[in-house]
């Protein structure tokens, strides 16, 4: 048996092992060094961010979490960043799930982000967990015209009448935008067909790589922002992280006594180049700032982004190596295929 034959009959477990190493080793390396690859947002990720950013603070956002632990690797980081942007912006978030396990996804993402980083948000006033409902697209179809029919209580068993932020919500038409993290059916397609198209509501979709190609035809008429696979998550994550940092710096600058136009300009500048903040505070213009505000600004500029907001960007590392492996495997497989075929033909 020569090399080509041996390669052609290669035990697939060797390929499994290669894949395991291609994913596992970068995870350990990135985990230890803490370095991630740079991300440039594509227009779709930026559009997703802009839709939520353009809404007035206090807007009502329906957050439909239609995924399960199996897809959490891709959609978890998107869910995290969606909540982070809405929480930072001051939007009111309404979580629902059409997947039985989606209720657990709502709990884990809200407890990680809201519980960990926005503890001042009040349940029932700033966000509410309405839980899971069975019925797939029938749920969407019903709540387009009547919300209470399907959701008499929230997930904790409180009547919706007793929840302050549910006041004035009688149907999906009362929401300002829909954010959907979807791993299949029912999911983004159903939200497009049954809610966004008839109601003409802004819809932002974060979906798995599998679904993403089918969602492209809906952009930009029926879907305004589309995050596809972990790459979309990483891009959106980096946009949100940058914005949150500049928002926080803006607060620090404003509370330190810098006038509004100057502070927004400065915040944008420091967000792009955080190390500048520490040198800038020694300048004359910074003299007006209180020492506490100065310290806060430098802290913000030099503080690392919390690990949970870098999840997608970290996963781009194993992604890169594994993609290269996949390409290598396809080329190798074809090379062997053609080599055997040529030999077979000459016989």
């Amino acid at each position: 048996m020569n090399l080509i034959d041996r390669m052609a009959n290669l035990d697939r477990r060797w390929i499994f092992l290669m894949m395991g190493l291609a994913v596992g080793i970068p995870i350990i390396v990135i985990g230890i060094t803490g370095k991630t690859l740079p991300e440039e947002p594509t227009p779709l990720a930026q559009a997703a961010f802009d839709v939520l950013d353009d809404l007035e603070p206090g807007s009502r956002i329906l957050m439909a979490w239609d995924f399960d632990p199996a897809s959490e690797g891709e959609l978890g980081p998107m869910a995290t960043s969606f909540i982070r942007q809405c929480a930072q912006k001051g939007h009111r978030m309404y979580f629902i799930a059409l997947w039985p396990v989606g209720a657990q996804m709502i709990r884990s993402s809200t407890s990680r982000v809201i519980g960990g980083y926005y503890p001042d948000l009040v349940y029932g006033e700033d966000w509410v967990d309405l839980g899971f409902k069975a019925g797939n697209e029938a749920v969407i179809k019903t709540i387009v015209t009547d919300f209470a029919q399907y959701f008499p209580t929230d997930a904790r068993g409180t009547s919706v009448d007793a929840i302050p932020m549910m006041e004035g919500i009688s149907s999906l038409a009362n929401f300002d935008a829909i954010v959907n993290a979807s791993a299949g059916y029912p999911g983004s397609k159903e939200w497009v067909l049954y809610a966004a198209t008839p109601l003409k509501k802004p819809l932002i979709v974060g979906c798995t790589g599998v679904q993403a190609p089918q969602m492209y035809p809906y952009v930009p008429n029926q879907v305004q922002g589309l995050l596809g696979a972990i790459k979309g998550a990483a891009e959106y994550e980096s946009v949100v992280n940058k914005w949150v940092r500049s928002e926080q710096m803006l607060d620090a600058l404003e509370s330190g006594g810098i006038t509004e136009p100057a502070s927004s300009e400065l915040a944008a500048r420091f967000a792009a180049n955080p190390s500048e903040a520490s040198t800038w505070t020694t300048e004359a213009a910074a003299a007006a700032m209180s020492p506490e505000a100065k310290t806060r600004l430098i802290e913000l500029a030099s503080a690392p982004t919390p690990g949970i907001f870098l999840e997608a960007q970290r996963r781009m590392g194993p992604q890169l190596v594994a993609h290269l492996l996949m390409i290598g495997l396809i080329i190798a497989g074809n090379a062997i295929f053609f080599a055997t075929r040529r030999r077979g033909g000459s016989q």
């Binding site: 891709e74 194993p318 594994a322």
Partner: peptide, 15 residues
């Protein structure tokens, strides 16, 4: 895109 998604899931398990 599918390859992309699958690898992210494996990465999550390894994590």
């Amino acid at each position: 895109f599918t390859v992309m998604g699958r690898i992210a899931l494996l990465a999550a398990r390894f994590e």
